[in-house]
Write a protein that binds this DNA or RNA. Structure first.
Lengths: 109, 109
DNA sequence: GGAACATCTCAGCCAAGACTGAGACAGTTG
DNA sequence: CAACTGTCTCAGTCTTGGCTGAGATGTTCC
């Protein structure tokens, strides 16, 4: 229940705020249900926009907007299907995703 | 650059959206700079409200509001200093924080 | 070429949430 | 007890960001 406290009840007012900008930025990306579902689905392999729109129940232009956010952050990339190039498939950039997870781990340890 | 795609260019429209509610909820908590700094600072041990307010540069009532959010989520708990009980010290609930991190890892793998 | 499909972009609307200000409660000090 | 300090709560304001709608681009099929 209780825990160890500093012996002297003297607040330290000279503490610096740690830099958490990267972790906050990635948390903001994960803090939306649609984007979180997208990233989770792409763990299992590439998916095209219409698949993710159907799975999330969101409209395709909305999903496309979220994918643009994830693309700008470097977490996913796209390429067209060779057999039917009108489908745009997305996959995760695993090194970037690992960096994002590391940034989160810097906050919650 | 390119990557393996499904051979058949037939989108699967029967995919279910994975459950990411817990991860999204914790990401929303981390998606604020003040709360992220708080959680990061509390990695190194307990701190009182005025210390965290000074470090973040935010007002104490604002920090208190954010601490209430973290308390409601079960990530931190408070207790008064024995020598000077007017200081309220906060510490992390490590098991709860571990669960939060696991929920994030469920999204980004 | 034209129709249909898959995706993108962007402006506009709207709701969730962060910050402010004022007031209240708890603990300390004289 | 009165004054002061540390923290909390809550209503109000304002900004950030997600969803919608319309239009544009690229691809396939007839």
């Amino acid at each position: 229940m209780s825990f160890e406290l500093p012996v002297l009840p003297v607040p330290r007012l000279d503490l610096k705020a740690p830099d958490v900008a990267d972790g906050v930025a990635t948390a903001a990306l994960l803090a939306d249900r649609t984007r979180a579902v997208i990233l989770r689905m792409l763990r299992d392999g590439p998916h095209c926009v219409c698949e993710m729109a159907a799975a999330t129940g969101e409209r395709e232009n909305n999903v496309s907007n979220h994918l643009a956010r994830l693309r700008d952050a470097g977490l996913v990339r796209a390429s067209r299907h060779e057999a039917n190039a009108r489908f745009l498939y997305y996959e995760r950039d695993e090194p970037a995703v690992s960096k994002a997870l590391a940034a989160l781990r810097e906050i919650v340890g």
